[in-house]
Amino acid sequence: MKHLLGLKNVSATEIQEILDEAFRMKREVLEGSKKDNCLSGKSVITLFFENSTRTRLSFELASKYLGATAANIAASGSSVAKGETLIDTAKTIDQMAADAIIIRHSSSGAPHLIAEYTNASIINAGDGMNEHPTQALLDMMTMQEKKGSLKGLRVAIVGDVKHSRVARSNIYGLKAMGADVVLAGPSTLMPAELERLGVPAYYDVEKAIQGADVVMGLRIQLERQKKGLFPSVREYHKYFGVNEARMQLAAPDAILMHPGPVNRGVELSADIIDGDRSVIGEQVTNGVCVRMAVLNLLAGNKK
């Protein structure tokens, strides 16, 4: 694998390879404090056209833990904003002999575009509404950690599926791994012909959560309300918010996930965010592990 642009066409074997590597990183590097210099001498650039402190930091730490030189380009404050095209920017970075470029961009397909023009490995850290593969990988890692296997797992994803790259990557990845994905959200926040992705979608959140092993809330952009996609945060929470009562419908040992940051009291009620079933904290830790794994597999010295 040269790039990680998405999970759309990634096989179960490849996904499992990344997850296995992520578990190794967690055991040896993060918890075992064992030095691993598989990225020493490598340069990793984060090129973020959208603000996201947590994802950028996660990638930067992953690079540093493995001995890489990490540099960050905040695209909004650089020449990028001033008429330079994305391809020009990527070529410039490539000329500086970057080994991996981690890109986040509001346009779907932006990572695919630069992958055609650079020698570096391109890692998609979120492109428009398309994909966010490392988020889905860390979600899958967390599920596997808690549930043992992804096969046959019932995963309910709740919220703004339409605009969610997290949902899309999870759908592709989880389906490849043999999990059963069900979706729930308001009709105005469901993408067209979703059923052709092979996942059932419900407007009734309780139907989706019924018997689920994993309940995943998606972050809702509060600006969507102003665009008329739902009438109020109050009504959204009433019909689609995940709360304790709804979690009771899930499997007895179900876990609760969220890609963060959570709008408390909107997607999830406050009590369950901090409750026993919540694995939101572990997701963050596993995020670093998954990113170490991906960086090593794509750009590592013993690749």
Partner: peptide, 13 residues
């Protein structure tokens, strides 16, 4: 076009 392909590509339809 809004439809399966816009969903698949994550592009606004």
């Amino acid at each position: 076009n809004e439809g399966y392909m816009s969903t698949y590509l994550g592009l606004r339809g």
